[in-house]
Design a binder for these strands. Sequence first.
DNA 1: CCAAAAGTGTTATGTCTACACCCATGA
DNA 2: TCATGGGTGTAGACATAACACTTTTGG
Lengths: 259, 259
Amino acid sequence: VAPDGYDASAYPRFSVTVDVVILSVVDGRLHVLLLQRRDEPFAGSWALPGGFKRPDETLDEAARRELLEETGVDAPKHLSQFGAFGDPGRDPRDNIVTIAYLAVTPDIGRIIAGDEALVAGLVPVEEVVTGERVMAFDHERIVRDAIERAAEQLEDTDLATAFVGPRFTLSELQSVYEAVWGDQLDPANFRRSLAQPMLISEYVVPTGERADVGPKGGRPPELFEAGEAWGDVGSPVRRTRRKPRPSENPPEGRQKGRS
Amino acid sequence: VAPDGYDASAYPRFSVTVDVVILSVVDGRLHVLLLQRRDEPFAGSWALPGGFKRPDETLDEAARRELLEETGVDAPKHLSQFGAFGDPGRDPRDNIVTIAYLAVTPDIGRIIAGDEALVAGLVPVEEVVTGERVMAFDHERIVRDAIERAAEQLEDTDLATAFVGPRFTLSELQSVYEAVWGDQLDPANFRRSLAQPMLISEYVVPTGERADVGPKGGRPPELFEAGEAWGDVGSPVRRTRRKPRPSENPPEGRQKGRS
DNA sequence: CCAAAAGTGTTATGTCTACACCCATGA
DNA sequence: TCATGGGTGTAGACATAACACTTTTGG
């Protein structure tokens, strides 16, 4: 950390912010909460909610506070740090290093636009990754990374239950996986993959009760609720392993290159 | 990010540092590079190499620079960010936010102690996690997180090859997995698990040549080299999935709680 | 020949996928 | 009764773990 014979003012200092990527599944599609900026720079562009870290709070506390201030969500079921971004030019005004957090909520009804922004709302992530929705700063990159992280965490944590309400059907839960992974899952196998953990009440536990049927009829599904919190142990549902494809689409050396 | 009608000096500012956890496997045991601090605070305690980010460089560049300055290692095969730490009291002198990086090297011969430290050296991680080796700041926590990250990355990236030299035997590679996971692997199955990727030259590729035999004789092993870089696609070796044990050792809701 | 390490075969067991099939409800 | 999801069964493909066995070297 800091060298020894040291004078704080002798070293460059930075503003430190916390940005929160809030993901939610609406109508089977993954959405992210964005604010439209009112002022320069990037007036009119879309940005993530976030704000300055205070000296007397931890990064986690700063993220929780910003989330509460900007969306009214308190004590989210899932809030985790996934990256730090500090490229020199990322904010044209100043040297700002930001710590990015992933939050997940069930479909939120109303979003309150703060006074810093024109509007706030959940927009389909597809619009962000295609570039259709123009993002401020390096926020497109941050959103991409958040989605990637969420996809990973679905695989070996109970993250999915943070997308749904306190009681949910397995179809709802399945649609979370499908929305985040952009993939179709077999309902029969999906159900089965939860079978062992279900027995020991870890991941999801059946509540005997049934939900109302959908608009088009069908058998009323059983309601489940989240089991004991257990973080990242075990493996509820596994994403199909990419087989080493025979020849097409060569692996292409990727570099994480966060900065 | 930063609010709009904004004056940089109106917000608290922080020093930003980069700390590097350099892991290496020596004699089948996982080691971490530490420096013993010369001055207060924490004089005599052990700390990670690291230093201040400069305004004109990215975080990745800062990490690479610090790694080079402190150890002479240039262009490491693996260098990745894994967390940010900013608890208010983590440095008693000042508000410092640090971005932590994981680097991996083959067994390095000589470590040069810089003028900031008494000594530098690779110490077994076991001494750190048991508390036997007293760490400065929150560096024990950071080392723990780094090891956890490394263990994860062994499972689905080519990280293991960064621990060994350009040419290596499968036994050497296996001992990397064993050291990081603290686990024994069956050589026969280990070899097989690399079989499919090996065929398409992705993960490790055989070089027809053989290494010298060890001190106790035995058949001379074949030498391999790392295949095309391919980051985090595929799955070379899988860690045995913790089965939901029938009843013992309940999952205990964990919270990441980084800060 | 023996010890030691590399490397191959084999088998039992488990997991995943695909898909056929039954169940419960509204219209 | 039909359409629409919810939910169960099952057979083949595949992956894994355990361990017996063969190969190649040095002493």
